[in-house]
Nucleic acid binder design. Structure first.
Lengths: 221, 221
DNA sequence: TGACTAACTTACCAGTTCGTACATTAGCCA
DNA sequence: TGGCTAATGTACGAACTGGTAAGTTAGTCA
């Protein structure tokens, strides 16, 4: 396949800094998600790319910075997805349910990201804290929740005191746990939380839970 | 400092297999929880005990088996605590709320255990799966939930189709997430989920959520 | 077209890390 | 009280692992 005309590539590919970096990030993401930060091996990551270990140090500086770069890109993908959220044309109840479902879907579709977050928590979020790109990045979903809650309160459907960050935590908890802890949960209780046959069941359960919470009459004062 | 009379214990302690093993497990639990399985160093664990690395291999066989032993003991502690649950004298609504609160407290009081569970999930629960003591161990809390749900259904207070394992997952999700993900959540949203000043707030929120879910009228059919 | 720089490769090292061979001793029991 | 065994300590090594020194090549631009 190597044609004579093409400008002299040593092994079938030309030099391309962006592509090399992207490939390293792809592989590193998989490896860090698979075995954790300490469990990942720079040599292994390099071996799984079409480039060499030296390039990791050339572009990223070291293992630690590579992990930070992986986190930065992963969170960037999440942010982008959240920016595409389009639920505010619905009434508040339907909008929150839809938002919860999309969060649910998103967690299910990005198990590697979930694992990276777990791993970063084991390291007490030190890489996020050290990253300029990631400190207090917030979340577009949060703004959406804020607006829906305001609309829900105005229409009198939702309990007044619910906070957007708290609701985000509530929704995320369920979605995160289901993916992150599926292995221990499955081993201990014999139930696969990510079983496709149960998917609709848990998706509905999450929506029911959140809506029930938001629309319930509080007893206490 | 070494006196001549004393029956020659080299450094002030007698031989005691049980104590040595327990000490190793204590230290190993802290270390594994602190830096993960791959991040933990056998030499470091040994250095933090009053015995030597040789003893770890003598009693446990290796790093992998030591981690499994740590998990087995940690889950044992949880089981014991759950066996002391005493909520069934309450009416179903109060009982579930109380159970949720105790689960909440328990997660807060055992952050090391939470971290070990996160770590074991990164390893896809392979140690639990390989352990004779831990496979399908279930949970005493589950039986309690089952009985309360039955009582709640009979009295007509609870929605009929709620499953005990699912409810356990729902309660655990919130409690687990709050402790396990507090670092990334705090770094990204500037809110400490484990802030003592917010403790009552989140504890109430969990109870409200679960009760709202259980007592809500389902719309769908 | 030739020199300059970014992109890349190879080979290697120093420190680490799990594990073990070997030596020793405390304490119990006949 | 003396011997036996579980318990313990010391020293070491082979493989691994993050990181780097030194050199090479592709592509671009004056």
């Amino acid at each position: 396949m190597t044609s004579v005309d093409e400008p002299a590539r040593s092994n079938g590919r030309t030099r391309d800094a962006a592509r090399t970096q992207a490939e390293i990030l792809d592989v590193a993401t998989r490896e860090f998600a698979r075995v954790g930060y300490a469990g990942a091996r720079v040599d292994d990551i390099a071996a799984r790319t079409s480039t060499t270990k030296r390039m990791i140090y050339y572009y990223f500086g070291g293992k630690e910075q590579l992990f930070t770069a992986v986190l930065e890109r992963a969170y960037g993908v999440i942010r982008e997805a959240e920016q595409r959220l389009d639920v505010e044309h619905l009434d508040p109840v339907a909008a929150i349910r839809r938002l919860a479902e999309l969060t649910f879907d998103h967690h299910e579709q990005h198990p590697d990201f979930i694992r990276l977050v777990s791993i970063e928590n084991i390291h007490e979020a030190e890489h996020i804290a050290a990253s300029e790109k990631l400190g207090r990045i917030g979340s577009p979903a949060l703004d959406v929740i804020r607006r829906i809650l305001a609309a829900g309160r105005e229409s009198g459907l939702f309990t007044a005191e619910v906070d957007a960050v708290d609701l985000h935590a509530m929704i995320s908890s369920f979605c995160f746990f289901r993916v992150a802890n599926r292995h221990t949960f499955g081993a201990l209780f014999g139930r696969d939380l990510v079983d496709p046959a149960q998917r609709e069941h848990y998706r509905t359960m999450l929506g029911d839970m959140v809506i029930a919470y938001l629309t319930a009459e509080r007893t206490g004062g």
